[in-house]
Amino acid sequence: MNNTELKKEILRISGVNVKKCMKCGKCSASCPAYDEMEFHPHQFASMIDNGEIEPLLRSDSLYRCLSCFACMERCPRGVEPAKLIEAVRLTAIRKQGANRMTADDVPQMLDDNTPGQLLVSAFRKYTK
């Protein structure tokens, strides 16, 4: 897929109208994972609008997003950045045809301090 197609696909999956964004940054201001992320929620909106999809697909930010939906809740324009991030993540997974985490990775992550629930949700999130 070229960039235009990618953009179309992401907009289709997410159902988001990025043109509504007025670039206030409230999404990123609300983001609890901000410092973990290379690209921030507001950048997802503007980069997708600009068709800069490749850097997003390669970025670790996709997997740093906690899916807490604070950005969606707070956005005054109803842009829903979390849906965009999810859509890019889905595209990345589909494109690579690979999972970011496999069942084999799980045992080495097991330790007494990590809640089992975390691993379950991480596994769910990083796998197709």
Binding site: K26, S28, A29, S30
Partner: peptide, 19 residues
């Protein structure tokens, strides 16, 4: 340039998280 995402009162302070 940026919006405030949240304000959390903590003690005598207000923790402001913003872009």
């Amino acid at each position: 340039k940026g919006m405030v995402g949240k304000v959390v009162p903590e003690g005598k302070k207000l923790l402001v998280q913003a872009s």
